[in-house]
Design a protein around this nucleic acid. Structure first.
Length: 920
RNA sequence: AGGCGCGUAGCUCAGUUGGUUAGAGCGCACGACUGAUAAUCGUGAGGUCGGCAGUUCAAAUCUGCCCGUGCCUACCA
C-alpha cells in the first residue's frame, strides 16, 4: 500500500516563489478597490492620533534611493503605529517653489532662444507650476509603488492657493512683530541667475583665479620708517579692489619692512621700493614676486600698525579715499602676505569688520556682475571675466608687485555651476534675536526627543551660531514677500488690515495676485498707493516648507500640531528641521514637533557616496523591477538607518535570502494550517509543553517588538523575527513537529494543540511583518482568510497574552535544547562514520543527572531529538554524554520511524490507529 | 580647515557601567534528507574589534594622535 496519501503534508496556494515585481501591482490594485486608506481612517476614527508629518520632497526628477529610503521608513513607522491601534494618518507633501524648477523652465526658454525677462512673470510662473505638478504626479505614483500608504488623494503642496496665502500670512506675523527687517549685507550672489543664493544652493568646485599682490602706500604712520613704504596685500579677487576701504592685520603677527634690492627680469616688482609683509611669509611671497635680493630694514610687531593710514593702490587715479589699517582675528599667515584687504561690500568678515569701525559699505557691482560705470578705470568690467584685465591695468599704474594664478575651491551655484561673488545688496531678514527667536528655539530643542540623540547637539549648535535668516530671493517662482515700503521713511508698512487683504487675495487667486492686483486694492482706503513701493522679492523656499506645520498640521481637521515626529535625512538639520523650528517658534513660540528622527545617507556597498562619475548608483526602479518593493523595504528595515546605509548587489542578495526565509516560514505555516478551523482549536492549558513553550516565546517577542516600535528600532525587530523564524521555528519547532503534523491523529489533542498554536503564531507573525513586508504579509493573509475585504493592514498586533508567559518553562526548555544540541552533535558524528544516514535510524542513549532527566517528564524525548527512540541512564556528571545506537526493527512505511513493533513493509501501531480512525 | 557622526567576520547587525577563549543570523565549505524540494536539517571554517600610542591588574569598550569615510559649515584675503 502507498501510505503517502495518508500523510497530511502541508498544502497551500501561497507559492514559494514570490514573483514580487508582478504580484505587488496586483495587490496595489486590490487595495485600491478596497479603498484601504479611507477604510483605515474610518476604522481608526477617534483613536489616539499618531502624526508623522511628511517633509516635502522637491517636485522635480524621479525617485532616487534616498527618497525611497525616506518614504519607506516613514511608511514602516506609520504602519507599525497603525497596527498598535493608533490613527496614523499620513499626508504626503511636496515642495513646489524655488530655483531648481525655475531654472529648468529658463533652460527650456534658452533652448528656444527666448529670454526669460521678456516673458510676463505670471506666464512664467504658470509654467513653473505646471512643471511642479507634473513631477508631483510622477513621484506620487512612485511612492505608492513602494507600498507607501497615505492620503495620496489629497496631499499637501506648497503651491496651492491656500498654502500660498497661509505662508504669506506667516510672513505677515514676522512683519507685524518687528522680526522682519530690511538690511544690507554681502550675500552670495550669482551673476548668472541674478540672485542671492541660500547656503543650501551653493556648492564648491575648483576655480582658477587671478591673484595679485597689491601695494598700499603708507600715508600717515607714527612709525616714521613706514612713511615711504608699501603695505602688501594678496587677493584672489582683483575686482574687489575698487571696493577696498581698509587693510587688516593681526596684532600677534611679526612683520618685516623690506628693501627690495634686485628683481628678476620681467618682474612687476621694482628695486628700491620698500614693502611690508609678514615675516613668516617672506620666503613664499618674495619668490612669487620674482624678487631676488632684499634686506630687512626693520622688524615690526603687528600691534604697531594701529592708527596707520594708507592710500589706495590707485589713489592717484580716482580712488583717493583714505584706507585705514584695522586689527582682525581672522588674519593668519597660512597664505598671502599677512595683510588682508578689506572690501566691506564683498565678504562676510570684511563686512563685519567694517561695520565695527564705521566704515562705509560701497556699492561697486550691479546684478549682472559688472562694476558700476562711475568707477574709474574699471567701470563696466565683469567680475568673473575681466580680472586679468584689471590686473593689467593695476600693473600698468604701478600698483602691484606681483601677480599669478591659483586653482582653489570656490563657491558655485548648484544650478548654473557658475562661480559666485559676494555682493552687498538690500535684503529682507528675520532677526534671530530681536524677539528672542534664537533663545526660545534653543529651549524648544531641549524639549524635543531626538533619534538618534546626537541630532540634538547638531541642531542646537546650528541655531546657536547662525546669523539672521535672509528671507529674500530675487527670483520669480515663489511666494512674494508681502510688504510695502514707505517711500519717504523707507520703513515697511506694518498693518494687519493690509496683510489680511493680501492673504485674502492669495487665497482667491494664488500669490500671482501680488503681480496682478493693483497696489491700491491692498492699500486703500487707509493708505495712498503712491506713497509706497511694493517689494518685488520672493521668499526663500525654506520658509515655504518651514510653514507646513501652519497650513497642513493646523489647517487640516484630520491632523494636529505639534506632530509626533519629523523624519528626514541628517542633512535636514540645516534644512527643514531648522526652518520649521524657526518659523514655528517665531510665530507661535513653540516647536512644531515633539520628536525628530534622522536617517543617514545611502552609500554604495563600499561605503562611498553614489555618483554618476563613479558609476556606483543604485536606482530604486531597478530594484523594483528585478526584486520588488518588499525587498527594498526589507533592506530599509534591516539596516541601521541612524548611520549611513549601504546598498549594492551583495547586500540586496543578502536581503533576498532573508526574505526567502520569512516567506517560507509563512508558507509552511499556511501549509500546515490547511483546513484548520475554529472547531479544532483547544485551550492553551491542554496543549503539549512544546506548544506552551512556543506561546511563551510569542508572548516575549510580542512584548519586545512593541517596545522597539516606540524607539523606532526596526532593524532590531527584523533581526529578532528572522532569528526566531530560523533558529526557533524552522530548525527546532517545525522540524520536531513535522512528525505530529504529517502523521499524527487529526482528532488527537496533541495535533490539535499544535495546530492551534500554529494558528496563533500565524496571526502574530503576519501582524509583525505587515508593516515591513506590506505586500507579502497581505498575500499570505489573503491566502489564510480568502477575503479581500479583510486586509492584514486593517488589523492590529494582538495584545500580549499574559497567560502564555512561563519563565520556568522557558528555563527548562533552554536546557532541553542544550541537551538536544549534544545529541545532534553525536548523530552528526555517526553520520560522518557512515553508521547512519537519517536521524530516525538513531537511538541516542543519554547519560545525565536525575535533574536533567526529570526535564523530560511529560515530554516525548524521541520527538524532540527526531529519533525513533531514546534511552536514559543516570549519572552525576553535569554535562550529559550521548551514545548513538542503531534503531532496531523495521521502518514504518508511513512515518518512517524504525521500531521493533513494525513488521516488514508494514506500519507502526500509532499510524495504524490514525489510519483506522481517519481513512476507514 | 572646522562642527557632528561612523569604522566589530564576505554581508546585515549584537556587544549592558572596561572583566573568562568577541557573539547572532545569513553567505561560504562539507554532509544528510528527498514528505516545506529552486525548500529543509546538521557540522565546520571565517575576526591583531580601522591603525599607533597611552591610562589600567584588565580595553572592542576610556584618552590622545593618525588613517579611511559620511553629513553639515567655511573654504577667506
Amino acid at each position: 500500500m502507498n501510505y503517502k496519501q495518508t500523510v497530511f503534508l502541508p498544502k497551500t496556494e501561497f507559492p514559494m516563489k514570490a514573483g514580487l515585481p508582478r504580484k505587488e501591482p496586483e495587490i496595489l490594485k486590490d487595495w485600491d478597490e478596497l479603498n484601504i486608506y479611507q477604510k483605515l481612517r474610518d476604522l481608526r476614527k477617534g483613536s489616539e492620533k499618531y502624526i508623522l508629518h511628511d517633509g516635502p520632497p522637491y517636485a522635480n526628477g524621479n525617485l532616487h534611493m534616498g527618497t525611497a529610503l525616506n518614504k519607506i521608513l516613514k511608511d514602516i513607522i506609520n504602519r507599525f503605529q497603525s497596527m498598535l491601534g493608533k490613527d496614523a494618518n499620513y499626508v504626503p507633501g511636496w515642495d513646489c517653489h524655488g530655483l531648481p524648477i525655475e531654472w529648468k523652465i529658463e533652460e527650456q526658454y534658452r533652448k528656444r532662444g527666448k529670454d526669460k525677462d521678456s516673458i510676463p512673470i505670471v506666464e512664467f510662473r504658470k509654467e513653473c507650476r505646471d512643471f511642479a505638478k507634473k513631477w508631483m504626479d510622477i513621484q506620487s505614483q512612485e511612492f505608492q509603488r513602494l507600498g507607501v500608504c497615505g492620503d495620496f488623494f489629497n496631499p499637501y503642496t506648497t503651491m496651492t492657493y491656500e498654502a500660498e496665502a497661509s505662508i504669506a500670512n506667516e510672513m505677515g506675523k514676522f512683519l507685524l512683530n518687528g522680526s522682519l527687517y530690511r538690511g544690507s549685507k554681502p550675500v552670495m550672489w550669482s551673476v548668472v541667475e541674478k540672485t542671492a543664493l541660500a547656503e543650501a544652493e551653493i556648492e564648491y568646485e575648483d576655480h582658477k583665479s587671478i591673484t595679485i599682490y597689491a601695494k598700499f602706500p603708507v600715508k600717515n604712520s607714527h612709525l616714521k620708517e613706514l612713511n615711504d613704504a608699501n603695505i602688501i596685500i594678496w587677493t584672489t579677487t582683483p575686482w574687489t579692489i575698487p571696493g577696498n576701504r581698509a587693510v587688516a592685520y593681526a596684532k600677534e603677527i611679526h612683520y618685516s619692512l623690506l628693501h627690495i634690492l634686485k628683481t628678476e627680469e620681467g618682474s612687476i616688482a621694482k628695486a628700491n621700493q620698500k614693502i611690508v609683509i609678514a615675516k613668516d611669509l617672506i620666503n613664499s611671497v618674495l619668490p612669487d614676486c620674482k624678487i631676488l635680493e632684499w634686506n630687512e630694514i626693520l622688524s615690526i610687531e603687528g600691534e604697531k600698525f594701529l592708527g596707520t593710514i594708507l592710500s589706495h593702490p590707485l589713489g592717484n587715479f580716482g580712488y583717493n579715499h583714505e584706507v585705514e589699517m584695522l586689527p582682525a582675528d581672522f588674519v593668519t599667515v597660512d597664505q598671502g602676505t599677512g595683510f588682508v584687504h578689506i572690501a566691506p561690500g564683498h565678504g562676510e568678515d570684511d563686512y563685519i569688520l567694517g561695520k565695527e569701525h564705521n566704515i562705509e559699505v560701497p556699492e561697486t557691482l550691479n546684478a549682472n556682475g559688472k562694476l558700476l560705470d562711475h568707477l574709474p578705470l574699471f567701470g563696466g568690467m565683469h567680475v568673473l571675466r575681466d580680472n586679468s584685465k584689471i590686473a593689467d591695468i593695476m600693473s600698468e599704474k604701478d600698483s602691484l608687485i606681483g601677480r599669478g594664478e591659483l586653482i582653489h575651491s570656490y563657491p558655485h551655484s548648484w544650478r548654473s555651476k557658475a562661480p559666485l561673488v559676494f555682493r552687498n545688496t538690500p535684503q529682507w531678514f528675520i532677526s534671530m534675536d530681536k524677539n528672542e527667536l534664537r533663545n526660545i528655539a534653543l529651549k524648544e530643542i531641549e524639549k524635543t526627543k531626538f533619534y538618534p540623540p546626537a541630532g540634538k547637539q547638531r541642531l542646537f549648535s546650528m541655531i546657536e551660531n547662525r546669523p539672521d535668516w535672509c528671507l529674500s530671493r530675487q527670483r520669480a517662482w515663489g511666494i512674494p514677500i508681502p510688504v510695502f515700503i514707505n517711500k519717504k521713511t523707507g520703513e515697511p508698512l506694518r498693518d494687519k488690515i493690509v496683510i489680511d487683504r493680501i492673504v485674502d487675495a492669495f487665497k482667491k487667486k494664488g500669490s500671482d495676485a501680488w503681480f496682478e492686483t493693483s497696489s491700491k486694492d491692498f492699500l486703500n482706503p487707509e493708505y495712498e498707493a503712491e506713497d509706497y513701493n511694493q517689494v518685488q522679492d520672493i521668499a526663500d523656499v525654506w520658509f515655504d516648507s518651514g510653514s507646513t506645520h501652519a497650513f497642513v498640521l493646523e489647517e487640516r481637521s484630520d491632523l494636529n500640531s505639534p506632530a509626533n515626529l519629523y523624519l528626514e535625512g541628517s542633512d535636514q538639520h540645516r534644512g527643514w528641521f531648522h526652518s520649521s523650528l524657526l518659523e514655528s517658534v517665531g510665530s507661535r513660540g513653540v516647536a512644531p514637533f515633539e520628536g525628530i528622527l534622522t536617517h543617514g545617507f545611502v552609500l554604495d556597498d563600499k561605503g562611498r557616496k553614489m555618483s554618476k562619475s563613479l558609476g556606483n548608483t543604485v536606482n530604486p526602479q531597478d530594484i523594483l523591477r528585478d526584486y520588488g518593493a518588499d525587498i527594498l523595504r526589507l533592506w530599509v528595515a534591516g539596516s541601521d538607518y541612524y548611520e549611513d546605509l549601504r546598498i549594492g548587489p551583495e547586500i540586496i542578495k543578502h536581503h533576498t535570502d532573508h526574505y526567502r526565509r520569512l516567506r517560507n516560514t509563512l508558507r509552511y505555516l499556511l501549509g500546515s494550517l490547511n483546513g484548520f478551523n475554529d472547531k479544532e482549536k483547544i485551550e492553551c492549558s491542554q496543549m503539549p509543553q512544546l506548544e506552551k513553550w512556543l506561546l511563551h516565546r510569542v508572548f516575549e517577542i510580542n512584548n519586545s517588538i512593541r517596545e522597539k516600535i516606540e524607539e523606532y528600532q526596526f532593524h532590531s525587530i527584523y533581526t529578532e523575527i528572522h532569528n526566531f523564524c530560523t533558529v526557533e521555528l524552522s530548525s527546532f519547532y517545525f522540524d520536531i513537529r513535522k512528525d505530529l503534523l504529517y502523521c499524527g491523529d487529526p482528532l488527537g489533542m496533541e495535533r490539535r494543540g499544535c495546530r492551534t498554536a500554529l494558528d496563533i503564531l500565524f496571526n502574530y507573525l503576519s501582524s509583525w511583518l505587515a508593516p515591513i513586508l506590506c505586500f507579502t504579509a497581505e498575500e499570505a493573509w489573503q491566502s489564510y482568510v480568502k477575503n479581500k475585504e479583510d486586509s492584514i493592514h486593517l488589523k492590529t498586533i494582538p495584545e500580549s497574552n499574559r497567560d502564555w508567559s512561563n519563565e520556568d518553562l522557558s528555563k527548562k526548555w533552554k536546557r532541553i535544547r542544550y541537551i538536544r544540541s549534544l545529541v545532534l552533535l553525536e548523530i552528526e558524528e555517526a553520520r560522518n562514520k557512515n553508521i547512519i544516514k537519517s536521524s530516525l535510524q538513531a537511538v541516542p542513549k543519554i547519560s545525565m543527572t536525575e535533574t536533567d532527566k526529570n526535564l523530560f517528564d511529560g515530554v516525548n524525548a524521541a520527538d524532540i531529538f527526531i529519533t525513533s527512540d531514546v534511552s536514559f541512564i543516570l549519572n552525576d556528571v553535569d554535562t550529559p554524554s550521548v551514545e548513538i545506537h542503531i534503531a532496531e526493527g523495521n521502518k514504518c512505511e508511513r512515518c518512517w520511524k524504525i521500531l521493533p513493533e513494525v513488521k516488514e513493509e508494514e506500519i507502526c501501531n500509532r499510524c495504524n490507529d490514525v489510519i483506522k480512525r481517519n481513512f476507514k
